[in-house]
Amino acid sequence: MTIKIYGSLVSRATRNLWMLEELGVDYERIDLDWIKQENRSPDYLKINPAGQVPTLIDGDVTLSESLGINLYLAQKFGGGVLWPDDDAGQARCIQWSVWAAGELEPAVYPRVYEFVFKKAKDRDDALIVKLAERTLPLLDLMEGALSASAYLVGDAFSVADLNVAGVMEYLDRSDFDIAQWPKTVAWYETTYGRAANQKVQGERAPVAEAMLKRIVEHSRSEG
């Protein structure tokens, strides 16, 4: 049975689409339009009670949490490649994935809200400063790790890199300058620039542009 990913190209599902493209596994993407509240339909709420995306269905397995889905996919289909063979490497993959979810994402996601969805005059400057203060030590930590090895877990690309870069894109999208962390810059360019991700991002770009227009119209119609 083909793997199904519920989400859209403008959602956290892109992290999973990137992973599936890396693995070369067949999948079907089911777009849910949140402006039309398709993520609140009774059928969808059965598989994801909070109405969040993404959700993965693989046979009997129904999963939410984008970075958890990626760990699952890496373990199942990426043994020796995206999921390293040794205990130490596997432990680090879990570590960086939990770190991306629990430390990095809360520090960088709200920034996108401020920079992409709000007009310059409506931005919460105090929040932006607070988020930046929280982000700096996280980038220091990454820079340290990437000074010791080319990738977060040794010298090969793994699910750790994919999960962290998939969250770091929020800094990229909100024009956060990471030039003072050169190893991180080089790593991000190589990682985020991988063909599998570029394929997903190439498909995403026009959809994201159209979506942004609709959000603006939607918020106007809501007054």
Partner: peptide, 9 residues
């Protein structure tokens, strides 16, 4: 995996 991530996020 899912619930551990859910706890973190």
């Amino acid at each position: 995996l899912q619930w551990s991530m859910f706890s973190a996020t």
